[in-house]
Amino acid sequence: MLNPEPTPKTPRQSWMAVLARADAAAIADQLPPNDLLPGWRLLRGPEAGLIMLRGRTGGAGAPFNLAEMTVTRCTLRLATGQVGHATIAGQDPRHAELAALADALLQDPARHAALHAALIAPLAAGQDAAREAIAARAAATRVQFFALQTMRT
């Protein structure tokens, strides 16, 4: 009842997905204090906008436009050169900026391991646990119907 075949993600795609699902406070809590960070310059945003969600006809067929969703995006560049990006569902400019900042910091080989362990690993574990909790509730409603004699003659 979990995604049967998650597409293999690159490490960066994986941490970006975790950051997108976190909230601003959870990211801020685990980032080093500002005076220990390189400076950064906002290149674009954080800005609110929309994404047109696409479905597929019949689930697997031709794409169609379903409806829009709100997103917030941010791109910034660290003084050390890394460019971080975040696009997150919903409207929270602070979340988008912190996610972009974390994305940039995680691209710095000197910082990656410590930040991944302090920030991404616990967030990912929490998100996995939340997914598991839903899957466990779903599993409890798994049903085996027994067909009786057909009612129609």
């Binding site: 310059r41 906002l42 290149l43 674009r44 800005e47 791109t75 460019v83 990006h85």
Partner: peptide, 12 residues
């Protein structure tokens, strides 16, 4: 490649 020059200072 994200350029260094920003857009509008006050976008709206």
């Amino acid at each position: 490649v994200p350029p260094d020059r920003p857009g509008f200072a006050d976008p709206v």
